[in-house]
Simulated scan of single mutants.
Amino acid sequence: MSEWKQRRFWTEVTVREAEGGFAIALDGRPVRTPGKALLCLPTEAMAQETAAEWQAQEGTVNPLTMPFTRSANTAIDKVAHQHGEVADMLADYGDSDLLCYRADAPEELVRRQAETWDPALDWAATELEARLESRVGVIHAAQAPEPLGRLRARVHALTAFQLVGFHDLVSLSGSLILGFAAAQNWRDPETLWQMSRLDETWQEEQWGEDDEARAAAEIKRLAFHHAKRFFDLS
């Protein structure tokens, strides 16, 4: 038996002020999350983006074309109730940050990593008051507790909606520092994404591109850009 799929039943999509933000209504009926909570967005700009996704649906509703709705559902139904656990999980990236683990050879890769990643670590030391140290190799070496504590406090200070966007900025890049760099506009999202892909780009230059890997990377790249947009509108 085929899985049931919701079909578009509404004519008009509107944004309305609600307690705590802005809600989406379909023919006057408020949209609710899968957990039955009111789909209430923190800013009107985010609500308008979300409303546009509902307006764009034709025939069968396709959640894959509704990234703002899905991210908002996650913020309301999950992250709002598990804020501390999610914040701790993301803060833990600081102790194994992608930018801190460097190759010992070949010389060109060593140089490229230093030129690309050191400025981000320097930025974090100044703007986030958190100096993370690089090391050679992939074996874990703990960072000093003081900078990690400062980074953890910053993560915990994010709202549930911000944390949803921040989650993907960090997890997709593999770097807590790049997540903060995106959130605070140190560089544009595409530049930061390419910084996180330095090692993969190097391998592609040496051995050629793999079509499946390239397609998977493109999905992640688009998700990274959405995460930045979602964070900004939070």
Rank of each mutant, 00 (worst) to 15 (best):
H81E: 03
H81W: 07
H81Q: 09
H81V: 02
Q82P: 03
Q82H: 15
Q82E: 15
H83F: 07
H83W: 03
H83E: 09
H83G: 01
H83L: 02
G84M: 03
G84F: 03
G84V: 07
G84D: 00
G84K: 02
G84T: 06
G84E: 03
E85P: 06
E85N: 05
E85C: 11
E85W: 05
V86G: 04
V86D: 00
V86R: 14
V86E: 10
V86I: 06
V86S: 07
V86Y: 12
A87E: 06
A87V: 00
A87I: 04
D88A: 10
D88G: 10
D88R: 12
D88C: 08
D88W: 08
M89T: 01
M89F: 10
M89I: 00
M89V: 00
M89E: 04
M89W: 03
L90R: 03
L90A: 06
L90T: 01
A91M: 08
A91D: 10
A91S: 07
A91V: 03
A91W: 07
D92L: 01
D92P: 01
D92Q: 07
D92H: 11
D92M: 02
D92A: 08
Y93L: 01
Y93A: 00
Y93D: 02
Y93Q: 01
Y93T: 00
Y93H: 08
Y93P: 04
G94V: 01
G94I: 02
G94M: 02
G94L: 07
G94N: 04
D95V: 02
D97A: 11
D97R: 05
D97G: 05
D97M: 06
D97F: 12
L98S: 01
L98M: 00
L98N: 04
L98T: 05
L98I: 00
L98A: 07
L98K: 03
L99R: 11
L99G: 08
L99V: 09
C100H: 07
C100D: 07
C100P: 00
C100F: 06
Y101N: 09
Y101D: 05
Y101E: 07
Y101R: 12
Y101V: 05
R102L: 15
R102I: 00
R102N: 13
R102D: 03
R102Q: 13
R102V: 12
A103R: 13
A103W: 15
A103D: 12
A103H: 15
D104Y: 13
D104C: 09
D104M: 11
A105L: 05
A105M: 08
A105N: 11
A105H: 10
P106L: 09
P106G: 05
P106F: 08
P106S: 05
P106Q: 06
E107C: 06
E107G: 05
E107I: 01
E107D: 13
E107Y: 09
E107T: 10
E108D: 14
E108L: 06
E108T: 12
E108Q: 14
L109W: 04
L109R: 05
V110T: 10
V110E: 11
V110I: 07
R111C: 05
R111L: 14
R111P: 03
R111S: 12
R112F: 09
R112P: 08
R112M: 11
R112T: 09
R112Q: 15
Q113V: 05
Q113G: 10
Q113H: 13
Q113D: 10
Q113C: 03
A114R: 12
A114E: 15
A114H: 15
A114G: 13
A114I: 01
A114K: 08
E115S: 14
E115R: 15
E115P: 07
E115K: 12
E115N: 11
E115H: 13
E115Y: 04
